[in-house]
Design a protein around this nucleic acid. Structure first.
Length: 454
RNA sequence: GCAGCAGUAGCUCAGUUGGUUAGAGCACUAGUUUGUGGAACUAGGGGUCGGUGGUUCGAAUCCACCCUGCUGUACCA
């Protein structure tokens, strides 16, 4: 080892990236296996696309800038800009456009994969995370939108949540379209500002959103956010629609769009006999590409950070209909709808749920007394392993005390001692690490005795 | 990006109005027990006090800038 500290490499992780340990990974595997089961049951195809895409095929155009727009990780090879994908929807649109003629219509696929965002991490939010997406491509039928909600609910309940642990809320973007028509707000900039403000209703409450719609808002750290500068009569109108939920006054835009979406969705939920969702006009979802129904999945139990403080957790996923996204790639009509779930966030929350337990398998440890006796140890080891039980021979070079400490630390259920005394008597010693009880067993009986312990 | 708070041992933190060799608990190592973990006791190792520059006889402590983390907020195709 060198004494010069300056040449030691850093042991820190890049901002927003984390190491994940066994418990979290096992819960993630559990969630994934549930997802796969449900997806097969609902008839979705499994797809994988690469982590990198050409920047422009996933919506990043970089005319004269040195780097593609912030938010994505990008680099330039000899010819083109490449970006790590920031979601799974954009690559899906690219994939569908590329294989349009061959694909069945509608095309139903699901995908699990990491996505990356080059932005500031928050509580439970990282710059690399695992996403699950399921989409219907090539249908205008709102049954698809409703079925996505039914399906996601089935996945969550399979993962151990009960119906009170989560909420699915839905609305349609046509509602805000109708509202903008009613209020004669045509500036897309202003529309966007209003949408963003309304999207914060559940987190901030109406009083704060009201400030955002008007002159602006100061948050609790003292930072000021500019408002949309709407006059108070317009704000009042928005209040009636989105908070009081008195529905829209009659106008053609509403009748033809939002109203149809809403009755359609309600109808399908009824036919599916699906009750665990609520119509909520304040569900907006910031994304600009949504065109119809939108939905959001929220968890209802308290989530804490590593310091034990409760945090604003927000939604674990959501989705909606994006009828124009795929057609960006070509001159064909291609309506679509889909849902995304942030798996790491779901797992993070599941880990904190009191009644949620995951089984971690740890090996029985065979202690080493005599380095010349590995033949016996391996015999015992093979016998245990071939019966399907996890086991290992202590792989270090320490004395018994250290071996016991090791077994204790890894959470091993039991150790097997086979030293001079055991060789003489022909019986191994099996120590239950939880109770500390030791018994002497013939090698043939080892397995049945271990099974009593684990 | 903006704002608030924070950075002292592997971890959690203490460190008085600036004053010699910088502390505790947990963890680690060794021993009490050379064939026995989770308890106890004894001893020990481990820190450029986030970084750089400044003020000072003297800085973990004061000042400036930077870096990192947490929380909120903005943006999020």
């Amino acid at each position: 080892m060198t004494k010069d500290k300056k040449i030691k490499p850093s042991k820190e992780l890049p901002l927003g990236f984390v190491d994940r340990q066994e418990k979290e990974l096992l819960i993630r595997d559990f969630v994934i296996s549930n997802i796969k089961e449900v997806m097969i049951k609902y008839g979705f195809q499994y797809l994988e696309t690469p982590s990198f895409e050409y920047s422009d095929s996933i919506g990043k155009f970089l005319p004269d800038k040195d780097r593609p727009d912030q938010g994505v990780f990008s680099f330039k090879d000899e010819k083109s800009w490449l970006s790590l994908r920031y979601d799974l929807t954009a690559p899906l649109a690219r994939y569908v456009a590329k294989n349009y003629l061959e694909l069945p219509k509608p095309f139903k696929r699901y995908q699990l994969g990491k996505v990356w965002r080059n932005e500031k991490p928050g509580p439970g939010r990282f710059r690399e995370f695992l996403q699950f997406d399921a989409d219907f491509v090539g249908t205008k039928n709102l049954m698809a939108d409703a079925e996505l909600c039914v399906m996601i609910s089935e996945i969550l309940e399979k993962c151990g949540l009960n119906e009170k642990d989560y909420t699915i809320k839905w609305s349609t973007r046509k509602l805000t379209d109708a509202l903008f028509a009613e209020l004669k707000i045509n500036s897309s900039n202003k529309r966007l500002k209003i949408l963003r403000s309304l999207d914060k209703l559940d987190r901030l409450g109406w009083d704060e959103v009201k400030k955002l719609l008007g002159k602006g808002r100061k948050d609790k750290s003292g930072d000021f956010t500019e408002g949309a500068e709407l006059p108070s009569n317009q704000i009042q109108k928005i209040y009636e629609v989105f908070v009081q939920k008195k529905l829209m006054p009659k106008n053609e835009n509403y009748e033809e769009g939002a109203s149809k979406d809403i009755t359609n969705m309600k109808n399908f939920f009824e036919i599916f006999d699906f009750k665990n969702c609520n119509f909520d006009p304040s569900i907006i979802r910031g994304l600009e590409y949504y065109t119809g129904p939108v939905f959001e999945v929220n968890l209802n139990f308290e989530v804490k950070n590593s310091k034990g403080q409760p945090i604003q957790f927000g939604s674990i996923g959501g989705g909606g209909r994006y009828d124009n996204l795929v057609s960006n790639f070509g001159n064909f009509e291609c309506p679509a709808t889909g849902i995304s779930i942030g798996l790491d966030r779901l797992v993070f929350a599941l880990m904190q749920k009191k009644d949620f337990k995951i089984k971690v398998t740890r090996p029985v440890v065979i202690c080493v007394f005599d380095k010349n006796n590995f033949k016996d140890y391996i015999n015992i080891l093979n016998k245990i392993r071939s019966s399907g039980i996890s086991a290992e021979i202590y792989s270090g070079e320490n004395k018994l005390k250290k071996q016991m400490e090791y077994a204790n630390k890894i959470g091993s259920p039991a150790v097997i001692l086979y030293g001079e005394d055991e060789i003489k008597s022909g019986k191994a010693t099996l120590r239950n690490l939880e109770t500390g009880k030791e018994i002497s067993v013939k090698t043939e009986e080892i397995i049945s005795e271990i099974k009593k312990i684990i």
